[in-house]
């Protein structure tokens, strides 16, 4: 068994939160640059270049890419032979406590916006710490701890959708619906998007898969040929919408589409679409 210091985990999460807010990932920046070059609509190309300029200013002047520094969504892959070593005298703290401690200090030290309210319907009081984080933990073989922090804005998350299809539904029906969800998201959700699609599992797993899909590198296709083609087909259909950057028209409505799947019930075909804005912020580290 390998023991990982509580403080080490918290510090790693802290730096991931800050890095995510200030540095657009290389694959996203490259996709924006490629889109700006290919874009046939000059107004759309101008917006794409402004987004590239925004990323430059953010990194150089230490201004967050977007004022919506988001909920901290943390994907954890924990080695089965690893455990958290809590500091003396702090009682029984868990991995989740370490992650939340890191989110709290990261949002404070990084001058990031605290965007979490304690409960949804009554007083909606801000927790003041940007915690609790949304944490998805999975056990994997080994002794390492992989942490991925995705800071997810509200504007795009609000446009994400779920739907149960009949198990006999044809592929085209699914494609049409996903394209329709993206169309409905429109200008409000800050296109060009990155689109995560979760197919299969059950109600909640399909939603989780749709978000997990967003962690993948933009250039990487699904390992299964059928679903890799589905990704390519979806991307061309979405870009054919002509919605364009900021919804003002153009060839670039999405920078990428990623599909993740899971086995499901014989009666079900759940599909979830997670809409992510162009400010697609996610950073990973392995301890």
């Amino acid at each position: 068994m390998r023991y990982i210091e509580f403080k080490k985990i918290a510090e790693t999460v802290e730096s991931l939160c800050i890095a995510a807010a200030y540095e657009l990932p290389g694959d996203v920046l490259a996709a924006l640059e490629e889109a700006a070059q290919k874009e046939s609509n000059p107004a759309a190309a101008k917006i794409l270049n402004q987004l590239i300029e925004n990323a430059r200013i953010a990194a150089e002047k230490e201004i967050p890419l977007c004022q919506d520094t988001g909920l901290a969504v943390v994907f954890v892959e924990q080695g089965a032979d690893s455990a958290v070593k809590t500091p003396d005298g702090m009682g029984r703290l868990t991995l989740f406590d370490a992650i939340n401690a890191g989110v709290e200090s990261g949002y404070e030290k990084g001058y990031l916006r605290k965007t979490v309210v304690a409960e949804p319907l009554n007083e909606r009081r801000n927790t003041g710490t940007n915690t609790p984080a949304i944490i998805h933990q999975r056990t994997v073989p080994g002794q390492k701890l992989k942490l991925t922090v995705m800071t997810k804005g509200g504007g795009c998350e609000n446009k994400s959708q779920f739907r149960m299809f009949r198990p006999t539904a044809e592929k085209d029906r699914i494609i049409n619906w996903v394209v329709d969800v993206v169309s409905q998201a429109g200008a409000d959700a800050c296109p060009p998007f990155v689109v995560g699609v979760g197919i299969g599992g059950d109600f909640e797993l399909s939603c989780l898969l749709s978000k997990k899909a967003l962690c993948r590198n933009l250039g990487a296709r699904n390992g299964d040929d059928f679903y890799a083609r589905l990704e390519t087909d979806l991307l061309s259909r979405i870009n054919a919408l002509g919605l364009g950057p900021q919804g003002l028209g153009g060839d670039t409505t999405a920078l990428g589409v990623m599909v993740e799947t899971a086995p499901c019930h014989i009666a079900s075909l759940p599909v979830a679409v997670n809409i992510e804005c162009h400010s697609h912020r996610h950073k990973s580290a392995i301890i």
Binding site: L51, I57, I63, G153
Partner: peptide, 25 residues
């Protein structure tokens, strides 16, 4: 431009809270 918070902030030269400070951001 949505998502260009760094770029747009360069056009703001002064800021002052005038009401509802309890709302934070």
């Amino acid at each position: 431009i949505g998502g260009a918070g760094a770029l747009l902030s360069k056009h703001i030269v002064a800021a002052q809270i005038i009401a509802y400070e309890d709302l934070g951001a």
